[in-house]
């Protein structure tokens, strides 16, 4: 199906997350904070959030960078045929088993070379709208990750999807859950809310601009 966009295959995994790889020319599809899924079989899918995108170097890239000129052919060859994949880190948020969404960690992680797909708006709405937003605790668990930015990016994506799906109250409920989870950690919560505030400001500016343009 056209709306099922494959964005890579699994490199390595563990219970709390996994890393998949893709070619450099596929990098337009996955983005920081995007919700992805791994289809394990017909009944079982794992959902996760992209928290890291790494482009590794190799000997050829190092040589090309230090050369005096960079031929266009070499540039295109590096983008299209490079053997070092882009590594994309995903935080496991939950799974779907027989159509039921769970915000617990998946019972078993995905396997090597499993296909990774970007979630469609319907899948995002279904996963984020299920239960009591328990998946947010997985995002907040690892303080080594850029939690504030990751949450802001995810909330923006989910807010837009939920609003389009006729559930504008979702965003406020999600913020309340974030506050409930982080209220014991004043510095982190204020950073998260600061990032979310940026989202709000950006949306307000966009609305204002749209209004001016008619």
């Amino acid at each position: 199906m056209a709306d099922h966009i494959e964005i890579g295959r699994l490199l390595r995994s563990e219970t709390t997350g996994f890393v998949f790889g893709c070619k450099l020319d596929q990098i337009d599809s996955p983005s920081f904070g995007a919700l992805v899924r791994v289809r394990m079989d017909d009944h079982y899918q794992i959902f996760g959030l992209i928290y890291d995108i790494q482009v590794q170097d190799d000997g050829l890239v190092r040589q090309l960078i230090t050369s005096d000129t960079l031929a266009n052919e070499a540039w295109l060859d590096t983008r299209g045929n490079r053997t070092v994949p882009v590594e994309i880190g995903v935080l496991a948020l939950g799974y779907m088993l027989d159509g039921q969404v769970s915000h617990l960690l998946p019972p078993r992680p995905p396997l090597s070379l499993d296909e990774i797909f970007l979630c469609t708006p319907a899948e995002i709405a279904a996963f984020t709208g299920a239960g009591r937003m328990g998946y947010l605790r997985h995002v907040l668990r690892d303080q080594d990750k850029p939690v504030e930015e990751l949450l802001a990016a995810h909330l923006k994506q989910a807010r837009d999807v939920q609003s389009a799906a006729g559930n504008p109250a979702w965003f406020e409920a999600a913020l309340e859950e974030v506050i409930a989870l982080l209220k014991d950690d004043y510095p982190t919560l204020m950073r998260v809310l600061g990032a979310v505030d940026e989202l709000e400001l950006a949306r307000d500016r966009q609305s204002e601009l749209n209004g001016r343009l008619g």
């Binding site: 406020e172 913020l175 309340e176 506050i179 919560l189 809310l193 600061g194 979310v196 505030d197 709000e200 400001l201």
Partner: peptide, 9 residues
């Protein structure tokens, strides 16, 4: 914070 966020907090 924005009034809405401040209110929620």
């Amino acid at each position: 914070l924005s009034p809405r966020l401040a209110g929620l907090l």
